[in-house]
Design a binder for these strands. Structure first.
Lengths: 151, 151
DNA sequence: ATGCATAGAATGCATTTGCATTTAATTCAC
DNA sequence: GTGAATTAAATGCAAATGCATTCTATGCAT
């Protein structure tokens, strides 16, 4: 039988690349989650809050100025976040329960829901944003390629 | 490959890098999970099965060995997989229930558990390995740096 | 207008996961 | 040897997530 030698086949490279991604993702996400939980937020919660706080990257409103710049359709949020529609709905529900966002009806299409960040939400966001950046700097900035596995 | 561009502000660069990682991870993991579910496996299940199938040093030594080359302590698996100890225990439980792995006592330390892959497990692994490789090739092989975000 | 198909969002349910705790076996101090 | 402390793995429990379904609102054809 043909013996497999430790050559660098593209499949092996892909597998290794995938392992690296899994590793960085798991460790960073774990850290992020733990640090954010001290502020009553999960990683997904922060992602949504971050999108709302940044307000369409701050330049494009697209609503004619009628709505606050922190207002999004749920669909818009869904396209920017890797979460199922149902999960996103529940995240918004949690954030709303905590008073960080508010749901409102969409005037143009009353099936839709407009989500906007509240003042409390902005405060919370500005609190946790440095935390997130610190975690990213710590986990992504330093060793990332192969040796990141070693604590 | 090299996507580093040391021109922007480091915080924004890190945030973008993290978004890229989140994106690739989410889409690849989602695909992987969906495809593997057709074979009754989740992504974590496959990871464990893959470790067991590849043997200790990542390469299948010899072909006919019935020796415990597919035998791992749970702890060893834990160090190679980003999963909590409890979750790993349950993954092993599922795999065992499906007859893909077998648990046995560890002679040296009877607190420990030895996990080894079964013949059925090897068959299943050889079935799904090409699937995984195909998904990885499809999701990682093509554009990955920045344009992978656009569908 | 009326009825039927479709879109946006919420909810029921099952699965997976992590944290905290428990159970069992080993090691250490005495 | 006996008992406390420690380690390996399993389990109770709660939270998060995805799929399928449901509910409401819209659009389109008649």
């Amino acid at each position: 039988m043909a013996v497999e030698k430790p050559e660098c086949l593209p499949e092996r490279l892909l597998a290794q690349e995938w392992r690296d991604i899994l590793d960085v993702h798991a460790r960073t996400m774990c850290e992020l989650d733990r640090e954010l939980h001290a502020f009553g937020l999960g990683a997904s919660d922060f992602e949504v809050l971050d999108l709302l706080a940044q307000g369409r990257d701050g330049d494009d409103r697209g609503d004619g100025g009628k709505d606050p710049y922190g207002s999004f359709r749920v669909q818009e949020l869904a396209s920017g976040i890797h979460l199922s529609q149902s999960a996103l709905s529940r995240v918004i529900g949690r954030l709303e329960k905590d008073g960080l966002v508010a749901r409102g009806m969409c005037a143009q299409d009353r099936r839709g829901v407009r989500v906007e960040i509240t003042d409390a939400g902005r405060v919370r966001h500005s609190e946790v944003l440095p935390i997130q950046r610190a975690v990213l700097a710590r986990m992504l900035g330093s060793g990332r390629g192969r040796d990141a596995v070693r604590p």
